[in-house]
Amino acid sequence: MSLRIVVTVKYVPDATGDRHFADDLTVDRDDVDGLLSELDEYAVEQALKIAEDSDDDVEVTVLTIGPEDAKDALRKALSMGADKAVHVEDDDLHGTDAIGTSLVLAKAIEKAGFDLVVSGMASTDGTMGVVPALVAERLGVPQVTLLSEVSVEDGTVKGRRDGDAASEQLEAALPAVVSVTDQSGEARYPSFKGIMAAKKKPVESWDLSDLDIEAEEVGLDGAFTKVEAVAERPARTAGTIVKDEGEGGKQLAEFLASQKFI
């Protein structure tokens, strides 16, 4: 038996850097340092764990849609231990929204061939947390999302979803789309050996024509949503800061009372 896992990873601007918007109101991805979304490291980790725990012949492919630099994200995932990578890159993809992203991912996943898709819980830039559900809808396979624990056995994926009101045990037959949270287990660091090995691993590049997608279906022109205005949030006016010299708690109570919280 073989098990084909596709891990979707996003290349995002560094959250600790100065993130901003470009003139066309899309995220500026040129002037900011980028990296593999930290939340997708958890997806890579769980895919590698599933591979290690399996008696099957497992192949882990990492897939990204993004500009040239997004290769860095693929490189990192390969050095963690993924087997091969697919980079979907096309100028017409600039400004694609969630609906469009899910189209491209679904087509690329189908072309790559899959039994299991593993995604992150949300990207660290768009933070929508909807792409895995959209990809499942498009592929017509079960959605087993937001798992803090996941395992695959005998063609079935199982996991635990810790929701607002309850913690649920979920189960679905493969093929399926899974997403994992940052509670699923620390992601490994690439070893020196892993980094060297990654240099020899195959990275395929596909464009829209490889996926039979028309330019009008994606990008800013194909988008289903439009950002009309962007404004930097005004800096909060500097507050009062006091040093505790024995009365700090009382002073704070006084402030809360003045604001009618007490």
């Binding site: 909060r236 009062t240 800061i241 006091v242 040093k243 700090g248 708690g249 704070l252």
Partner: peptide
């Protein structure tokens, strides 16, 4: 912050 106390939380 609108109001901050620099101090040990176990006191404040």
């Amino acid at each position: 912050v609108d109001y901050g106390v620099v101090g040990d939380l176990f006191d404040v």
